[in-house]
Design a protein around this nucleic acid. Sequence first.
DNA 1: AGCTTAAAATACTGATGGGTATTTATTTAT
DNA 2: ATAAATAAATACCCATCAGTATTTTAAGCT
Lengths: 202, 202
Amino acid sequence: MNTKGNKPARGRPKTMSRDHVLKIAVESYWAEGPTGVSINEICRRAGVSKPGIYREFGNEDGLKVAALQAYQTTFLAPLGDILTDDLPFGQALQALTDFVLLDHKAHGLPDGCLQVAMCRSKDELGMHARQSADKFREQTLFALEQWIERAKSKGQFASNIPSRTVALYIDAQIASAMELQKQGVAQDELERVFKLALSVFS
Amino acid sequence: MNTKGNKPARGRPKTMSRDHVLKIAVESYWAEGPTGVSINEICRRAGVSKPGIYREFGNEDGLKVAALQAYQTTFLAPLGDILTDDLPFGQALQALTDFVLLDHKAHGLPDGCLQVAMCRSKDELGMHARQSADKFREQTLFALEQWIERAKSKGQFASNIPSRTVALYIDAQIASAMELQKQGVAQDELERVFKLALSVFS
DNA sequence: AGCTTAAAATACTGATGGGTATTTATTTAT
DNA sequence: ATAAATAAATACCCATCAGTATTTTAAGCT
């Protein structure tokens, strides 16, 4: 909430930057998996003491929740926008393709998707991180579903396949594409695969 | 190789069953992930001492290799058969669907796919387990590719999409379906999603 | 200056991890 | 009987983990 907002009346001034720690945590969990990095290691990388982390985030679960939410708002917001912007269906599909083909390596960011990774390693996570991941997944599936519903009602999606089914399918295609990216599949190959996946709609 | 084949001339007779330990290991890694269960825990579950495991499998990496290979031959062989049986394309697609829709829970087995899980947690694995997972993945992609090539040459697959692209796509659909199963998605919903995925070929 | 407040850093705890040294038990060969 | 061989079981080693108690440092307040 406040990284700098209200300075307390007295006491030793805070030197640890919550945002800096979060950035390190997001990139670490993103690159190495939510269970692949320890708090000790994150402390080392962020140049911060362990009690500092615990004062700021409570416990490991709290850090993971904060990292996941930071990831969601920073890197997954564009996806939500595409689905709620009410674009013509074909245009939205193109935007989806662009989103998926974003070359993270070019921006110095890991491949893959932290949200997907958290969902997958659900049972090695704390309660709150699990809940946060589940909730976001639900919201995304719902947004996909509503988007398909709208496309149907606008006559841009001619099919009697249940919207929920289509939502699950598209969600899976996005996750798969990001997985392929992580595996090092070339961008043009990735594009062919994803466009093949979307070709079910034409 | 030999669980009982050659009995050594002398020494205390072996009581530990390699197959029993492997069965426990496969199910444990399958259900909880290749990094989600420790050797200590597998010892407990198998009712076997730790040095016993190390005598039999060398180290953790060796146990994972053995478990993965047991999984591959036991549960993934049918997939390979479908691809090499030279069935008519439509029939092979149906067999693929049946394979994916196998209800593991009904057989008391975990959902998801250990092979896929191993590939995904590659960088938390030992060298040999990683190599074994990679190799099997390559073989599967190659089998898929050849299968598509054959369908093309038989005129049952009319498209100019590269076979490698199609192979990556189908591989992703199988993995996605197993992931959905693990998430508890209903069988009929799963079937709709998978058939939607395969509808790109008709 | 001295007191209070709060964060930083160090050092610790107990549990668990992978892996192993050592001892004990059970067999065959002499 | 005893020695050799081999597996089983116990007990251990050291690293690392999540989490915490304790002390030190740096500020404001009086």
